[in-house]
């Protein structure tokens, strides 16, 4: 009995009907969190002593970077579930997670570059974290490219699941190597380690934004997976009925 929900998850229809009522709530929740967090961070949190107002980018940069990395693991784990238990739904989640993760990685990179201009005086610095983020972006692009290249949907899913798993094994190694590489070449002028002593008045809006981004991620992942479910099941009676209802 305990495993019943797990087997039910294999049914795309069950998933679609179950998650339907969640969507408005999730949308409202993430909108409220993101808007209040952004307003709080932009207008009410105190300015940073050293960086002034430019630090306010942290409220989108850090959550996006969190989700970019977490998203890769979500993608790889659902890919693994799809490979091991041959669960169609997990494949659909994996396929949906790839573009979301890529966009969030892109957001983290761009906001980081914009933040770097007033802080370091340059758009791009080969900093360890930025470089790792860039490589994560490439990993996402690889998964998406592989997914697109196969005509047959099932093969595409399996192949990109394997690639995602290989990437998961490699991510810690890549991060450690890039860290090590950076300490080797670190220019003495750039020091950026003040994040650990962040003041609570700056931290709370950040936490709001992080939770908001998580909710948003869940929302978008469900949205994408749901439309993927409809696409794959379009020949079945329940999707046809759904279309008839409007």
């Amino acid at each position: 009995m305990a495993w019943q929900w797990f087997h039910r998850l294999g049914s795309p229809r069950w998933f679609y009907e179950k998650t339907g009522p969640w969507m408005p709530w999730l949308a409202v929740l993430s909108a409220v969190l993101l808007i209040s967090g952004a307003v709080w961070g932009l207008a009410f949190a105190p300015a940073d002593m050293k960086q002034g107002n430019s630090y306010r980018i942290i409220y989108i940069h850090v959550p996006a970077a969190f989700l970019a990395l977490a998203g890769y693991y979500i993608m790889a784990i659902s890919g693994a579930i799809g490979l091991i238990w041959k669960m169609k739904l997990a494949d659909m989640v994996m396929k949906s997670a790839a573009p979301i993760g890529a966009v969030l990685t892109f957001v983290a990179l761009v906001t980081g570059a914009i933040w770097g201009k007033p802080t370091w005086g340059t758009w791009w610095v080969w900093d360890a974290r930025i470089t790792s983020m860039l490589i994560l972006f490439f990993l996402y692009l690889g998964v998406i490219a592989l997914q697109e290249a196969y005509q047959h949907q099932d093969t595409a899913n399996k192949a990109s699941a394997i690639l995602a798993l290989v990437g998961t094994v490699n991510i810690p190694i890549i991060y450690k190597s890039v860290d090590w590489w950076y300490t080797l070449h670190q220019p003495a002028t750039i020091k950026f380690t003040s994040e650990s002593t962040i003041h609570p008045s700056m931290l709370y809006p950040l936490l709001t934004m992080v939770i908001g981004f998580y909710c948003f991620y869940a929302l978008v992942l469900l949205l994408r997976t749901r439309s993927e479910v409809l696409e794959r099941e379009k020949k079945t009676r329940w999707v046809q009925d759904l279309a008839r209802q409007g």
Partner: peptide, 16 residues
């Protein structure tokens, strides 16, 4: 204006 940092901050939020 954000004391001169406005364009950066608003561009970042806009792109996001």
């Amino acid at each position: 204006a954000m004391a001169g940092h406005g364009p950066y901050v608003w561009a970042a939020y806009g792109i996001t």
